[in-house]
Each structure stands twice: as structure tokens, then as C-alpha cells.
Design a protein around this nucleic acid. Structure first.
Lengths: 352, 352
DNA sequence: TTGTACGCGTTATCAC
DNA sequence: GTGATAACGCGTACAA
């Protein structure tokens, strides 16, 4: 491979002004500073181990050359990429966006970069992403949810990498876990309806096969209905991307076919907003005749009319805690806490 | 560095079951398949250059060992990381999320991974991200907006990397550009108001210093007002994170201090939703007494009441086109088109 | 405190 | 069609 050699020759022939292209390596800095590469490396990584005078010389050379260490080479030499990968179902949902934001800010503060993938709620896409990330030798992996492909599990078993699963709970996590009980959220939603004297509940979300966490919320709602001695909630599923348009149609169908429904729990606030609109279209007063409860506490929830009562999930906190757990493991300082339940909270506003 | 050696020895001593830890390298596959490392490398990258029988042998060994090529090593050897970095102001806004999604899906299809950063609308954070990404030797960079730190520009000048700026237009792009005219959007918003006979306009957004694109929309609105022979629009700025709560207060203050306002252009739909709510709070009928125009066409825009009239930006398309432009440059096949104006469109619904 | 020598896992070259 | 060899740029023992 004579790429480098050729470039060097080209440089040698050229006027070689101060602002050349990329090829600035450790050696170049070392030469300019009049020291060895090792000293430069140390000066950048452990400045305290180097004499003040040489340190200044190195820093000067670095600045003059605009040297930027090559992290690929560094990764190869150390076996650590300082990259963490995260897979979320979608970025289009502000709660996952908060989680990603929380993750990224903590990690970046510790010198790690975040590599992001969205699985579109598809387990095999998740597996493909995991494979790709593992190939990039990421130092750790964040996975949304606790249900994964057998292929994903096999991959993870082979390449022992720290893993944090987020946004759900399970008794058998792959490794670490930061989430909350989705079943519990469903149960609390039901109790909330029961306390209001609602007797005929419905649920709007993605189908359980497609998204386990939504299914668990439905399961919780069912349990609460049984406990309250009420009929099982009527489920309605929208699978094409949780778009408000599809959601609205689904709610319209639901209200038309089951006019006696007096409470509706939606798997996310976008759907709940659509439900509010559908109720308005049918002239059904909310919350008088119909209680609408959302999930996620999206930005807009407080500003719909009526303002949306919803289940608030600390999305950003999930990201931050996951990042901290990973860092603890990666830096090997504090013992990493394996399992965190961040909980949730029903924010009572006007719609329920 | 005897990490590898030590590991090998440990492996040699252990039972060495089929599902060992990571250390599976090209050599291991080569040994098992009875060929050289070069042949394995070729079998994976250019299968057509290798005999069918050896190909099968290699594939078998790869499968049996669960081999995953180390892209850091590959990056070092080839000089290409197959990573593209993108910097957006925030992920909390679904339009940028679409852009990121568009970028990621096209890039992944071509074997590139996306590394993401959010600048929080802060130029110096952007510079820090650019520095970090450059250190990672990303193959290309996507930057939101056309205004950048001098430090950012210096960095980019030194390390010649393909760059695409998105979400705005300029006559002097750093390199490639995929966006639309923010000034133009402001002008069209004004024309829309003028056509409705609105005479006293207002603008709600972030301050121009903080976010150039929002400022350009205001500038466009001003131009339109002048052209229509009307007074300059009343500006109101919310700088603390575009939160609906802050937005609502700002609108309340605006409406109270300038009761004659009959049209309001908001820099994003979250703000517009807050404005809708504020108008309801003051019992101001929309759109009869007040026309509210949003920006971004967020998911929820169609389902507020009244449904939000807004400026639709093809966020996803911006991402996709940017990705295509990059790929064209990186793969060197088609000539990359340097400048794309994707335009925008006012979606007339109920609020204006 | 600083330098020498070699290895990290992969690929390009060029000969066979 | 296949293999030996030498990089790619950096970090770590170990010696000085």
C-alpha cells in the first residue's frame, strides 16, 4: 500500500503551505516538536507524565499542524472504540428522542460518541443493526425493549459486549436494564378510569405482536378491568406507523361500533391527540362522555384542548441512567447497578 | 502488547466450545478454511474473484466461527471508515428526526453507518462535534444550516471531507447543499396573510442571533409586509428551548399587549399549538379573529382543533437527497449535484 | 522523562 | 485464482 508514500512525495514536491489536507500524523507532530511519537502520544493522553517544556513544544506543534488523532487507529491499538451504539424503535417519537438525547449528552461528556439506529419496531432490522454495530466494535450497546430476535441474542452471546436494555422490565435481562413496568402502567391507567367510575374501557395501540410494550400496557389494563369487575377493554390496533391519520380513523371506527365506550387509553400521545380530534368530530364531549388518557407526555400534550391527561415516562432520565450504568461498567470504577426501575406517573390534566 | 497472545493462550487452555468470546479474526477463519487471510478477505468483499469451492469453504468457516470483520481495522487499512456524521440542532423536533431517518436509511442501504450529534442550536457545540467526528475520520459530514463558527470552517478547510449543508440555502455553500429558502417561506407566509386581508401581523420564534433560519423567516415576513404596504410585523422571541409552556406565555403577552394583531406566523408547530391554546384561553376565535400559521407540519398539526395551517418542509426528502449527494461523491459514480432546493408548501387547514 | 520496537486486524500490491 | 508481505496510525512494554 503506497497511498501514504505517494502522498508524502506529493507533499514534498508541493509548496506545503500550513493548511494542507488531512495526512497529519503523530510522526509529523513529533518531527516538528523534535521529540518521539511516544512523547506526543503521552503529551496528549497523560500530560502530567511529560515535562512542561516538551508539553508546550508538543502542544505548539499540534496547534500549528491542526493535528487530530485518528480514533480508528487508536481503537485498533487499544481495543476500545469509544463508541456506544443505541437502537430505538423510532426517532419520530419525542420520548425516544429524549432518551437518545440523555444518552448522548452523558456519553459525550465522557468522551464517547453515540452511533444510532432505528429498528422501525422490526426485530430483524434490530438484528441487522446489532450485527453492524458489533462489526464496528462498539464498546457497548443500548437496546430498546426486552424482546429480541434469537439471532440478536446469539450475536450478543458470542461477542460479549456490555448491554443495557431500556424502556421495559424483565426478570431475565441480557445484562443491564433501565426501564419501568409497562404492565404496571396499564394497571394504573385502569385504576384511574375505575376511580372516575368509567365502566366501558377501550385501548388503542399497536398490536402486541408488533410491539411488545404496547401489548403489555393492554395486558395491564385488562388486569385492572378484571380486578374492578368490569368487562374486558375493547382493543383497537393501528399498525401502520402510529400516524395520527390512521389513529383518527381507528378511533372513529371504535366509537361508531362501540358507542357505550366511556374511557380510552392510548399507547402514545400522538394517537391520543388523534382520538381527541375524532371525539370532536363525533361531537362526543371529553372528558364528560369520554375519558381520554395518553401515554408519553409529548411536548404537545399540555396544549391540546382539552389538555391531555397522560402517563409521563422519564425518557431523558432513562437515557442518562443507561449511560451512567454503561460508563460505570466501561470505566470499571463504581460497580454498575444492573437494574433500575425509573417508574412513571399519571399527569392529570383535562381529558381524563 | 500481549493482549491477543494472552487471550489465545487462555483459549487454548479452555475447552474452547463453539461459542467463544469476540477474538475471531481473519486468520482464524483462514486457518479453518485452509486458505490465506487474503483469500478470506476477498471472499467477503469480492466473492466473484474467488473460486466457488473456496468461497463455500470460507463461508462455512465464517458461519461456524461467527466471524464479524473488524471495521476499525478495515478503516485503517483502506482509509475509509464508512461512517457519515450528521449534526442537527435537536432531535426533539420531528422534522429533523425525519431528516435523520431519511439520511440513515439511504446510507445504511449503501453500507454506511450514521453518527449523530445535536448542537442544541449552539455554534461552538457544533464546532466541538465537528472536531470529534473529524477525529473519527468520518467519510462525510452533514451540517444543518449555513451559518457556522470560524473554528468549524477552519477545521473543515484543513480536513477536506465532503460536506452537505441542509435546511437552508446560500450562494456560498461550504460544499454541497440541500435545502429551501427560509426567507422565501417567510415571504409566502406573508402573502398568505395578505390574501386573507390580514393587516396586523406578528411573528413568534427564536431570536435571529440564536437561530439564523428562524430569523430568515422573520425577514421574509417583513419583506412581504412592506410589499403589501402594511406595518412591520410584531416579533416575539422565545429562546428557552421552544417549549410549549414558554411559547404559550409569549403568545399571551403578545395578544395582551397588541390586541389588534390578526395574524401570527410561528417558527414551528409546537409554538403554533401553544398559540392555539393561548388564543383559546383569551377566547379569541381562530381563524376568525386570529390567523395562526405554523411551520414544519409536525405529526400533530392535522389533529389540533382547529387543525393547523402550516408550512410543510420535506424533511425526510432533505435527508434522502443529502445522502444521495454524498453517496454520489463518495462512490464517485455519478457526478454529485451540488445544490438542491427542495422547496416548501403551505398546507391550508383550518387555523389560517 | 523519553525513545525503540512491535502488535492491533485488515487490505493493496504484485508475484506465482 | 491464490498467497506472502508490507503498510495503515497509534499505544504499550521495556529499555535507556
Amino acid at each position: 500500500m503506497s497511498r501514504r508514500t505517494a502522498a508524502s512525495q506529493a507533499n514534498a514536491g508541493a509548496p506545503a503551505g500550513p493548511s494542507r489536507s488531512t495526512p497529519v500524523r503523530l510522526v509529523d507532530v513529533a518531527r516538528l516538536a523534535g521529540v518521539s511519537t511516544m512523547t506526543v502520544s503521552r503529551a496528549m493522553r497523560h500530560p502530567e507524565q511529560v515535562a512542561d517544556s516538551t508539553l508546550r513544544a508538543v502542544q505548539g506543534a499540534v496547534a500549528q499542524l491542526g493535528y487530530l488523532p485518528d480514533s480508528a487507529a487508536s481503537a485498533l491499538a487499544t481495543g476500545r472504540s469509544r463508541i456506544v451504539a443505541a437502537i430505538v424503535p423510532t426517532l419520530m417519537n419525542s420520548v425516544y428522542a429524549s432518551t437518545v438525547h440523555g444518552l448522548a449528552s452523558i456519553l459525550r461528556g465522557a468522551g464517547y460518541e453515540l452511533m444510532l439506529g432505528d429498528s422501525s419496531y422490526d426485530p430483524s432490522t434490530e438484528a441487522a443493526l446489532v450485527r453492524s454495530f458489533l462489526g464496528r466494535r462498539v464498546d457497548a450497546l443500548v437496546l430498546t425493549g426486552v424482546e429480541h430476535d434469537s439471532q440478536t441474542r446469539a450475536l450478543l452471546a458470542r461477542h460479549e459486549v456490555p448491554v443495557v436494555e431500556i424502556w421495559d422490565l424483565t426478570t431475565q435481562p441480557i445484562d443491564m436494564l433501565v426501564g419501568f413496568s409497562n404492565v404496571g402502567a396499564g394497571v394504573e391507567a385502569g385504576r384511574y378510569f375505575a376511580a372516575q367510575g368509567r365502566r366501558r374501557w377501550a385501548f388503542l395501540g399497536t398490536s402486541p405482536q408488533r410491539e411488545g410494550r404496547s401489548g403489555k400496557r393492554l395486558r395491564g389494563l385488562r388486569e385492572a378491568a378484571r380486578a374492578a369487575g368490569l368487562a374486558a377493554p375493547v382493543p383497537a390496533f393501528v399498525d401502520d406507523g402510529m400516524s395520527p391519520a390512521a389513529g383518527r380513523d381507528a378511533v372513529l371506527r371504535l366509537l361508531d361500533s362501540h358507542p357505550q365506550i366511556d374511557a380510552l387509553f392510548c399507547a402514545n400521545d400522538a394517537l391520543a391527540t388523534a382520538a381527541l380530534r375524532a371525539a370532536a368530530d363525533r361531537a362526543i364531549p371529553v372528558p364528560t362522555a369520554l375519558s381520554v388518557l395518553g401515554f408519553g407526555d409529548f411536548d404537545i400534550a399540555a396544549h391540546t384542548s382539552p389538555a391531555l391527561t397522560t402517563v409521563r415516562i422519564p425518557g431523558r432520565e432513562i437515557g442518562e441512567r443507561a449511560a451512567c450504568a454503561l460508563l460505570a461498567r466501561l470505566e470499571g470504577t463504581d460497580p454498575a447497578l444492573g437494574r433500575v426501575d425509573v417508574g412513571f406517573e399519571i399527569v392529570g390534566r383535562e381529558s381524563a
